[in-house]
Amino acid sequence: MIKRAMNVIYAMWLGEMLRFWRSKSRIIGALSTPLTFMIFLGPGLSSGFQFQGGGTVDLSFFAPGFIGMSVLFASLFGGGSVVWERESGILKEVLIAPISRFFIALGKAAGGVTIALIQGIMLLIIAGLIGVRYISGIGVLAGLIIMGLSGIGFIGLGVALASRIESPEGFQMIMSFLTMPLVLLSGAFFPISDLPIWLGGLVYLNPLTYCVEALRWCLLGYSTIPISLSVAVITLFAVAMLGIGGNLFGKIRI
């Protein structure tokens, strides 16, 4: 039984990997936005910011934000592939197989997380090359775990939305409606200490905030939100979204 489940998860993962590998445009597309931000926006922002205490913000501060952003994009897109696969009929073939829908969803999530991690690692390397200094190797590995956990959460969210929204156009719209505030209100672009209450409230409700903060702690050694809280929120988010996504995916009518 477990072996059967593992085989199904592997089959779904394999499909995701093959498709990812074949679509170079998707790799480039997913990387280009955070990369552009990192190379052009990062230096621009860092020259303009000053902590109230007097310290300046350097490029390193933004790197975790851009990586978190890349994880968000890759994961939501990965989960959202359900919409396109339903539209093209590919999903029917998978859903008629004598296997639990949950394992199918899990396999898709595994594929999505792997892709998010690959992109995250590429960004980590590029950031390193343009001068971001990481505190330790262990920190970087811990960062990868944070990326994976957050990735699962956002894939779950993507699958949940994709299972309810039937048209690719509708999904696309919800995506742009959703990603913008998630990114802007995540502390990717500004320090989240000393925010006005209304803004701070929104920032603290945003799961991406905890992902970015945890990455900052792992990669750079400092964060506003304590790492234990970040990890707890991310883990909770991942479990909840996997549950909700898996559940809604299970309800798709063929």
Binding site: N7, Y10, L14, G15, L18, S23, G89, E93, I99
Partner: peptide, 22 residues
């Protein structure tokens, strides 16, 4: 309707199907 994955090869389509069916 055609429910093959056109981004994969013919063999890959059959292979993944085989895996899904154990």
């Amino acid at each position: 309707d055609i429910t093959l994955d056109e981004r994969l090869t013919g063999r890959e389509n059959l292979d993944i199907h085989g895996r899904l069916y154990g």
